[in-house]
């Protein structure tokens, strides 16, 4: 078991997990996930439904213990020791329906060591800032689903935690509230908090995350920046020569196909410039050229599909 804060280069690590696994009966939910999240970073855990994201987050927070592997949270190997410095929004939202919104936020703060009075004061201020000032003394059961979700989110950050873990925070929110939430995540990160959130909606991850991990089938399949994730897929190119269109095939990659109007093919990042040069020097000219970099969504789909194939092959081999 490791003790003391872990460093990644010069950066102190807020969340560290090494090959953590978890099984529920015969089902292996997490087969070995490693994460290393520097302090102050917005980090996304991406994965399809049932990939093991929630189980991974619950193990990191100490709600459940891993069967094997080790973890460290804010420099502590026992996550519960730093429960006061963490905020958590679970995937399955839950609030006491008969509690008033302000009390619900104060209660969640009190659970993390914030005084009730201070929690009530902060709750009022935060709700006002989030545009929920009118609902401060309303009971949870009288709030809309989106409003209740925001109340719960405010409850998870009312004590100004150093680490905020959000499990599918955007699900169930309308676009306006999604904007609110993104702004809130950014402001918490600007305050210095580390944000770790799971999602299967790539647009949020693309806009918010500095680094992402993609989990599929209980294993981490990718870890890096969003740009690195997008970089695993080649650039999609469309090229229309200005002359001798039929002769250009010899210069193009093997997968190039002519659709009657233009050539379509994929390119690695480093191949784009040499190809362009060769086409001009070869006298084919450029009547039209578009290079389309795939989004995180495409990278995610590819990684997950590859993971499924690999798992199927492994299962067949067994």
């Amino acid at each position: 078991m490791r003790h003391g804060p872990i460093h990644l280069g010069s950066e102190e690590v807020a969340v560290w997990a090494d090959q953590i696994t978890k099984s529920f009966g015969a089902a292996q939910a997490v087969r070995g996930v490693s994460l290393s999240i520097p302090k102050g970073m917005i980090y996304g855990v991406l994965g399809p439904n049932g990939a093991g994201k929630t189980t991974t987050l619950r193990m990191i927070l100490g709600i459940i213990d891993p069967d094997s592997g080790s973890r460290q949270l804010l420099g502590h190997s026992r996550p519960r020791d730093v429960a006061n410095r963490c905020g958590y929004l679970p995937e399955e939202r839950g609030l006491y329906p008969t509690m008033k919104a302000r009390e619900a936020i104060a209660f969640m703060g009190a659970l993390r060591g914030l005084g009730w009075a201070e929690g009530r004061t902060r709750a009022g201020e935060m709700m006002e800032a989030a545009g929920l000032g009118h609902a401060v003394d309303k009971k949870i059961r009288h709030l809309s689903k989106g409003m209740a979700q925001l109340v719960q989110l405010l409850g998870s950050i009312v004590h100004k935690p150093d680490l905020i873990v959000l499990d599918e925070p955007f699900s169930g929110l309308d676009p306006v509230n999604q904007e609110h939430l993104e702004a809130l995540v950014r402001s918490e990160a600007a305050r210095g908090a580390t944000i770790l959130f799971s999602t299967h909606v790539m647009s949020h991850a693309e806009r918010l995350c500095e680094r992402v991990a993609i989990i599929a089938g209980g294993l981490r399949r990718f870890e890096g920046t969003v740009a690195e994730a997008r970089g695993i897929l080649p650039i999609e190119a469309q090229y229309r020569p200005s002359a001798r269109a039929a002769d250009v095939a010899a210069l193009l990659p093997e997968d190039a196909r002519f659709d009657g109007q233009c050539w379509r093919f994929s390119l690695a990042d480093e191949e784009a410039e040499p190809l362009l040069l060769a086409l001009i020097q070869g006298g084919f000219g450029v009547s039209g050229l578009s290079l389309q970099r795939p989004g995180l969504h495409d990278a995610f789909v590819r990684i997950v599909q590859d993971a499924k194939q690999t798992d199927a092959q492994e299962a067949a081999a067994c």
């Binding site: 619950r58 709600i63 679970p90 006491y96 969640m108 659970l111």
Partner: peptide, 17 residues
């Protein structure tokens, strides 16, 4: 039953033993 049906137990369990 209230905690379980309202999923509050997850929040409680993440903060307290």
């Amino acid at each position: 039953v209230e905690e379980k049906s309202n999923k509050i137990i997850e929040i409680l369990a993440s903060a307290a033993s």
